[in-house]
Design a protein around this nucleic acid. Sequence first.
DNA 1: GTCTATAACGAGATAGAC
DNA 2: GTCTATCTCGTTATAGAC
Lengths: 196, 196
Amino acid sequence: MLQSTKRAGTRSAILDVAERLVQRRGFNGFSYADVAAELGITRAALHYHFPGKFELGEALIERYAARFTDALAAIDAAGGPASSKLRAYADLYLEVLRDERMCLCGMLAAEHETLSEPMRQIIVGFLDDNDAWLVGVLESGRSDGSLTFTGPPEDLAPMVVGTLEGAMLVARPYGGTARFESVAARLIADLTSGVA
Amino acid sequence: MLQSTKRAGTRSAILDVAERLVQRRGFNGFSYADVAAELGITRAALHYHFPGKFELGEALIERYAARFTDALAAIDAAGGPASSKLRAYADLYLEVLRDERMCLCGMLAAEHETLSEPMRQIIVGFLDDNDAWLVGVLESGRSDGSLTFTGPPEDLAPMVVGTLEGAMLVARPYGGTARFESVAARLIADLTSGVA
DNA sequence: GTCTATAACGAGATAGAC
DNA sequence: GTCTATCTCGTTATAGAC
């Protein structure tokens, strides 16, 4: 390490702040000024790292997707039955909600009509990755007997994503995590107890 | 009709345009200028009818909730088994999505942290009404035998709302209604075929 | 890499004429 | 009820000094 041992870097700090703001207020609900103020730097400095808001947005969702991919890999690495992987997946959502945030991807999905084409593509890719990972979990759950459901996993995976995203979306106006946890618990219970 | 047989009135026209813009772009994704331009009037005229954007937002969600209540009453009036009422309920969402819109309430739920307190309260009231109506449908479905599920209807109703909202949210980046319809069909099938 | 300064534009809002 | 005109502020973005 020859340079910048000081900290994780301004760029990373910007992404951290912007990410939280987008998840709480939406992409159209925050500004460069918000981020700059929180970091104690100027807006001009932000433009050095990210020329425009859309570029920032792209970096945001890219990093988020990469981190999510890592989290899914960690779940896979932990092993165990598919049912516990599914639970761990739902817990990823819960952790976000605990911090009073919406899933970044869900938030951007709501605003997707106002986003740049590159941002939209990354979002769809992220959703596709979620579906694909879940399909794998559902398949292995059917094999190891920990999950029971009818029809192809490809049909069920989008429902799992949609249910968790929607539960999160609706839970936030109520505050707390109760409403989300109730729905997530039922979703998992239905899949583990031979339902659906 | 002594006056203004010409049309439904400017106020109503403003609400129509603003509603569509919010549902497609979000509350923070449209401006008075957008609405004014589409109606061929000035921003000042908008301010005459709605002093501020939040007042417009309140009127928006209030009218939406009232219309939704009417739609639910119409479903009740049509009679039939609870299962078909549930299907009709899901179709309300589908109609919105067909017009490339997000549920107004779901969109505002995403942005709820940026809204006025009055708007937030109306949104929660709207969600509560949905839950309550669904609880009634679920109860009658258990009675008439058209719906089968475990646990109290009060626990299941939020899941139905969440699943439909989430399916809608995630479907929009993909365009079309296929992803939503697939999830809605499965949700209903699970409840009618003695699952969950 | 961060700053000051400023440009250029858009947004919400108000006053007052018609 | 709608207009023109104006105000104020916020937002994105750029130029150039340090």
